[in-house]
């Protein structure tokens, strides 16, 4: 029963953190921080997603093999972004 209570507590704490991050990202959006705005918004999104993956999707307690599968999708997305942007970001260089 103890393990049960601790699992439920983890879910509730995660939820509170996620809602707090949501409020934070909305508030920060109303401050003019220039280039930092999208960076902070992105960092908050990544943090929230990580919380969901580790706790709700219980990857934290999964075998190492599963971590590879979790990472693979994001890694390949990174390849797509990096190489496609190597075109779009350098197209006007001379």
């Amino acid at each position: 029963m103890n393990a049960n209570a601790s699992a439920v507590r983890t879910y509730i704490l995660t939820e509170i953190a996620l809602l707090g991050l949501l409020a934070l990202t909305i508030c920060v959006a109303y401050l003019n921080l220039g280039l930092l705005n999208p960076i902070i918004a992105g960092a908050i999104s990544v943090t929230s997603a990580t919380l969901i993956i580790l706790n709700f999707m219980h990857v934290r307690h999964s075998k190492p093999l599963l971590w590879i599968f979790v990472a693979a999708g994001f890694f390949w997305l990174g390849i797509m972004f990096a190489l496609a942007l190597s075109d779009f970001l350098t197209r006007h260089w001379r």
Binding site: L22, T25, Y30, L31, N32, P38, A41, S45, I52
Partner: peptide, 14 residues
């Protein structure tokens, strides 16, 4: 979680 800031929160301050 990603769509919300990308679509709703671009330069909200201006």
């Amino acid at each position: 979680v990603f769509l919300f800031p990308l679509l709703y929160l671009v330069d909200r301050h201006s």
